[in-house]
Design a protein around this nucleic acid. Structure first.
Lengths: 343, 343
DNA sequence: AAGGTTGCTGAAAACGATTTCAACAAGCGG
DNA sequence: CCGCTTGTTGAAATCGTTTTCAGCAACCTT
């Protein structure tokens, strides 16, 4: 016998299977004597319940899935780590999958998750192509929490739980800071403009230009053409233009690397010739010389909040369950931004 | 009825449960007619098998666990991503857990995994405290692959599958490069010296000193005292000494950040006053000014090789199964190393 | 044409837990 | 002392699948 089953424990304790089950699951309706005997027998046999069997009966797997575009991206990885720690403390296991922003892989993974009867799902959809999939999954009983993406809204009574970061406020603070330094031509390098979080950031960026009455032509939006080269070639093209911006906001750490490399290649000094501001703080931003001014929010908090939101649903206190967590963004001032040269 | 079961399919197709099961599992002993009818019925009902029930019967879960110290560390995260992609293609799900190098959490997670009947485990043990746990798990039928750590050796016939990176050769190449430039006082900053991979690197480092007949007193080994500050304070202390090294090898990317910050704080220029070499290549090393010379190996390959090794076991071709994969390390020459000033 | 082999089929037994239900004992009020 | 409630117990059903086994028909060999 490889591993002890509940049957063995019952036999060893001299009671019935049902009593063992009750005793082990903190049960009511168990006498002190049986509780003691069962605990002793279970301990002696090194009994460990079989989650597979339990799942089959209870129709819950004790597992939660996490679907992000790329688990190797430090931003995602940090969120995953925090969520995993929370969930594990609550007795859940975390299953991960990377989608590479491919809607098909996203859908396939979701279906796979459903087959495995995962209880919950943390997901950062790469597009809104799979809205129906999420809805079906939710209807089938899976608790879903959206990670910093545009949540689907069915109607007022049926909102989707989501953890959101206040990128709009962050972008406004950053833009105000740069316009305050005197910048009038600011470029926004981004991989995407359609969805959260980029859309929110762009909106905040534009709001400030409008509020301050600055010529909106100075607000340059650069969509990254090739997602694979870390924005390097796009940044090169941008910085070689005659009317090149005096400041660049890099929407994403992979993009920051491309911008910095491009500036170095062309021989532009930061912040003398070009101010650089990173959206998202990493080792690279903090350690680079000069240190890069950055927008920062707590990825740990995102992961933790997502796990908490999900656990609320899984525990079934839907009544008082929150739907939204909105996390703040800070502007970390460092040395990569200065007033533009007057020329 | 929320979701269709095999029973519903059987009824819809007008055959027995067993026939459906056989038909669906690519079975022999199924007539063409039944195969067709079952496929049609399953398709029409949107049938998806319940892995929970299947697991209970077949005693395999179709899931693989991954246990690393910190899944948010880009090195681990990249490995995990590659492994996950491989495993998913083979129909397995990947469950992750971070151990924070705490042997207790490591053991707890392993036990949890066993309760969930995970089929396999990719693990980078933080110490050899849990050797017995791994052995028990292996004996209970879990396929285990070790990730770039010292594998346990039971005896010649019972070796543990492992994916190893040739850190010793890498360290030798790096050290030879630095001694070739004229360095005689080289510091090795590391968080750990007992285990792979650090131990291998240190060994390689020392070998070169011995071979070249260089005064071994110049080979300074600095163990990071506080693991949380990215080696910053240790690097500061080291660089302030009168006999400070002319070159530093940072064994790990978190350590590289600390070294670079310390050099900047003190006002040492790289590579003028100090040569810096990173073990492990990241955005930070590639983009920093000056760009940091680094040892690089393919994390994708590590993850992929680990998944392949594991899949071999899971498929049961133990006969011709490999035990070891040894992956090469490259020295990427950049701008952070130069000959020391003569003084 | 008898006997044997093959190939397909469905009934039923697992897998290991939870949960329902009925039986039973004890305690209590009338 | 009877009936009723309360609390504990174990037998048995259940979750959805795979797998064993026996039955049966068809085909082949002699």
């Amino acid at each position: 016998m490889a591993v002890a089953t509940i049957r063995d424990v019952a036999q060893a304790a001299g009671v019935s299977l049902s009593s063992v089950s009750r005793a082990l699951n903190g049960g009511k309706h168990v006498s002190a004597r049986i509780a003691r005997d069962v605990a002793a027998a279970a301990d002696r046999l090194g009994y460990q319940p079989d989650f597979t069997a339990r799942s089959l009966r209870t129709r819950t797997s004790g597992m939660v899935g996490c679907l992000v575009s790329d688990i190797a991206n430090p931003l995602n990885a940090t969120i995953v780590r925090a969520a995993e720690a929370c969930l594990r403390d609550a007795g859940y296991l975390l299953v991960v999958a990377s989608t590479a922003n491919d809607p098909t892989r996203e859908r396939t993974a979701a279906i796979e998750f459903r087959g495995r009867r995962l209880d919950g799902l943390l997901v950062a959809p790469g597009s809104n192509a799979n809205a129906k999939t999420w809805r079906d999954l939710g209807a089938a009983g899976t608790a879903i929490v959206i990670l910093d993406r545009d949540p689907l809204e069915d109607d007022d009574d049926n909102r989707w739980p989501a953890v959101l970061v206040d990128h709009r406020a962050g972008a406004k603070a950053a833009t105000r800071y740069l316009t305050g330094l005197g910048h009038r031509r600011i470029a926004l390098l981004t991989a995407d403009a359609e969805m959260r979080p980029s859309r929110e950031r762009i909106a905040g960026f534009r709001e400030v230009f409008a509020e301050a009455g600055i010529d909106p032509a100075g607000a340059q939006l650069c969509l990254q053409s090739s997602p694979m080269d870390f924005a390097h070639s796009d940044a090169l093209a941008l910085l070689r233009r005659d009317d090149r911006p005096t400041a660049v906001i890099a929407l994403g750490t992979r993009i920051l690397a491309g911008v910095l490399r491009a500036a170095r290649d062309i021989g532009l000094s930061v912040p003398g010739d070009l101010s650089v501001l990173s959206v998202g703080d990493t080792d690279l931003a903090a350690v680079h010389t000069p240190a890069i001014t950055a927008l920062r929010w707590s990825l740990e908090d995102v992961g933790r909040a997502a796990a908490e939101l999900l656990l609320q649903r899984l525990r079934g206190d839907i009544g008082r369950a929150q739907y939204r967590a909105l996390l703040p963004v800070d502007l970390v001032l460092r040395d990569s931004c200065a007033s533009p040269k007057t020329n």
